[in-house]
């Protein structure tokens, strides 16, 4: 059994290293505080994997900084991480890079798994009266309007609403990810 566990971990690490890209994976909720790092990271955030060991992964998150928050895009709508520790940030030409270490259990190479909660909520709550629009055909701004207009009818909770909005923004026309075919 132990051997099997080790094999799974090694296999997973191998996959991550091969991929060089991962996504923040939080089982419940949107935001994960990493106290030691002085950083909070948001579910689904894409990561560049720098190195890995048995329990943790060193990663780099790239985005646009506004205050303490690192955003995915210049319109500051999709949060990636929050930090008070400026030393963790490296300034590039336009973007900032955040270097942190994340527990291996909070990282996955499966984009769909990372975004499953938001995706499931959207396709569950928002397709009961009509079909879903193609997410990638609308901008974040357009999704904000559409979702806000329909939210009262969908009767979603505040947390569910946050998950759905985050998912829609990430996969929108001007978002950072594309839904797989």
């Amino acid at each position: 059994m132990k051997f099997l566990k080790l094999f799974v971990v090694l296999f997973f690490l191998g996959t991550l290293l091969e991929a060089d890209t991962g996504y923040v994976y939080i089982e419940n909720g949107i935001k994960l505080p990493l106290k030691k790092e002085g950083v909070s990271i948001y579910n689904g955030t894409p990561l560049n994997i720098l190195s890995t060991d048995k329990n943790s992964v060193k990663v780099e998150i790239e985005g646009f900084l506004k205050g303490k928050i690192l955003y995915a895009t210049k319109n500051y709508k999709l949060k990636l991480a929050e930090t008070r520790m400026k030393k963790k940030l490296k300034k590039g030409k336009e973007k900032y890079k955040l270097l942190i270490t994340i527990p291996i259990k909070n990282i996955t190479d499966d984009m769909e798994e990372a975004w499953a909660e938001g995706s499931d909520l959207f396709y569950d709550k928002c397709t009961k009266c009509h079909h879903a629009k193609v997410i990638g055909k609308h901008t974040m701004q357009e999704w904000d309007v559409l979702f806000n207009s329909m939210k009262p009818k969908a009767k979603v909770s505040k947390d569910e609403s946050s998950q759905i909005v985050r998912f829609l923004r990430a996969f929108s026309k001007d978002g950072i990810l594309k839904e797989s075919d």
Partner: peptide
Amino acid sequence: ASAGKAGPGGFSQGRNRVKNI
């Protein structure tokens, strides 16, 4: 005026992988 309460659930359609509209 709106009651503002949740009604019954319903089937979800799930994800449509066809992007043509």
